[in-house]
Amino acid sequence: MPASSLAVTDVVAGYNSTPVLNGVSITARPATITAVLGANGAGKTTLLRTISGFVRTRGGQVRLDDVSLTRLAPDHIARAGVAHVPEGQGVITELTVEENLKLGLLLRRRADRAAALEDAYRKFSILADRRRRHAATLSGGERQMLVIARALLSAPRVLLLDEPSLGLAPKVVAQVMDLVRQLRDESGLTVLLVEQNARSALSIADQGVVLNLGKVVATAAAGELAADVALRRHYLGF
């Protein structure tokens, strides 16, 4: 599948009457990682929830290539090719590892499902060993692998990752970041990566976007953002 681009243009969105995003514009180019950074309350998670349809836009546009996703329901957006790995992992603990993975397969053609599942087990061998276990028994890192594998099984065009390092040990964070990098390099996936851990995110990203109080305050190549000492100290905390 050719790589896709995601364009968020002048989006205004929020909860009840309170706007959280005030005219946010971000373009994630095909087969790149775009890190979305900022302090708590900057609107990072709301941005992803708006793209995936859980928060309604009050203005602006969200487009996946030439297709408008604006105001579509979350399940429509998922079927359009946007996979969202939510903050807090989104594992269904009452299901087994394999059942969680099979959820990802529901968007694929029936004939492709078995091969895709075996392919996932080859890539994520830790999950193959635990396929019959309930997801509740997995460690935090294993759960993160599970939700990423599940998202990939839906054959997405764009992957939205919300705080994939949250609550994970530094070693596991490095593994997760390596995995995200591989997805871009080997699968040509377009990734929008929301991270509190700005240093880790910028180390693998192509471009970075800094949000503050619902507005974009900086957009630049990841290396440039990492080198901007004043911006780092003011908005990114390192």
Binding site: S52, P74, D75, A78, G90, I92, T93, E94, L103, L106
Partner: peptide, 19 residues
Amino acid sequence: LRMRASAFSGTVAQLMGVR
């Protein structure tokens, strides 16, 4: 599977394209 996923987590089910 769709029914069980919807019951346990409607949000995750929607993220997986379940109506």
